[in-house]
């Protein structure tokens, strides 16, 4: 038996609903239909009165979740696509993110963002928005790369007393499989060494972890041992694990699917450069999507985002230095 990344997300929500009567799910088409991606399949039937269809009102969806959190509930909001969360942006960053700081009342809610590029999805169904949410104080931003993390981190997200932006990658939904669901997990906020190496550190998160691992596999026959760090959460950012890895390798390449201006990769490099400059043997580099909206055509899309081949090429340049 195997379970996909998407099924793990569905199972995590079933566990949350089963174990905590304060949990409910609210989002477009999440009820009887089971969600646009079927991430809530059968949950409305299994948990009557706990899964609610919402009108196409992202702002009001998040606002309702904030009110419910004030009353002590633990809502899970499904955005149909991460891209549409910008229509609820104000409630996320100004209401949910500031509530605890302003009033001392925790705002425990989870916003699930199906994000990232898939071939043919185009500019408005492909975006990676972890950077803009991580920018705001008060939010936790999770970017699970594995089936196991998708499961355990979503359960953790619901249990956390802070608003969590849960970035689940659509490209991984069906492709990524695991044999079983985990019974234990790394703490939230800790990065994971996805592959050990001594020549160069690639820091990645979400789907880019798999591109980085493929690049590392491509470079292995050439004699290079690449270490891959999976950030797991981009906020909080586990600077210690990154720094320890760079201390071993002396080379840092940061890979993200988001746009290049600012962002998670820039943040990682800024931290390593300011705190661990002496650890670096060569200038740190980063690889992101191109600075354009995300193209629809597969030929363009494949060149728009970092791929294993592009990562390997960037790594080779750094290794030759």
């Amino acid at each position: 038996m195997s379970i996909t990344y998407l099924e793990a997300i569905r199972e995590a929500q079933a566990v949350a609903l089963r174990d905590d009567p304060r949990v409910f799910i609210y989002g477009q088409d999440v009820g009887a239909f089971g969600g646009a991606f079927k991430a809530t399949k059968n949950l409305a039937k299994e948990f009557p009165g706990r899964v609610f269809d919402a009108p196409i009102s992202e702002d009001a969806m998040v606002g309702l979740a904030v009110g419910a959190a004030i009353e002590g509930l633990r809502p899970i909001i499904e955005m149909q696509f991460a891209d549409f969360s910008t229509a609820g942006f104000n409630q996320i960053v100004n209401q949910a993110a500031t509530l605890f700081w302003r009033t001392n009342v925790p705002c425990s809610l989870t916003v699930r963002l199906p994000f990232g590029g898939t071939s043919g999805s185009g500019p408005f169904h492909s975006q990676s928005l972890e950077t803009i949410y991580a920018h705001y104080p008060g939010l936790i931003v999770m970017t699970p790369a594995t089936v196991e993390d998708a499961y355990s981190m979503l359960i953790a997200a619901v249990a956390i007393d802070d608003p969590v932006i849960f970035c689940e990658h659509k490209f991984l939904y069906y492709h990524l499989k695991a044999e079983a669901l985990p019974s234990e997990a790394l703490p939230i906020g800790k990065a994971r060494i996805a592959r050990e190496g001594r020549d160069l550190t690639i820091v990645a998160y979400s789907a880019m972890v798999h591109e980085a691992l493929a690049a590392a596999a491509e470079l292995a026959p050439e004699g290079w041992q690449i270490e891959v760090v999976d950030l797991r959460t981009v906020k909080p950012l586990d600077t210690d694990t990154v720094m320890a890895s760079v201390a071993r390798t002396g080379r840092l390449l940061c890979v993200g699917e988001a746009w290049p201006w600012g962002g998670v990769t820039a943040e990682v490099i800024a931290r390593v450069a300011s705190e661990g400059f002496g650890l670096l043997d060569v200038p740190p580099q980063r690889l992101n999507a191109k600075d354009t909206p995300i193209p629809y055509h597969p030929n363009l899309w494949a060149a728009h985002r970092p791929t294993a081949r592009a990562i390997a090429a960037a790594a080779r340049k750094m290794l030759r230095l």
Binding site: A97, F100, W101, C107, I160, D162, I188, L237, R271
Partner: peptide
Amino acid sequence: AVAGTDLRETH
């Protein structure tokens, strides 16, 4: 700005 003491940025 976060309630969870184990979730704060250490940097």
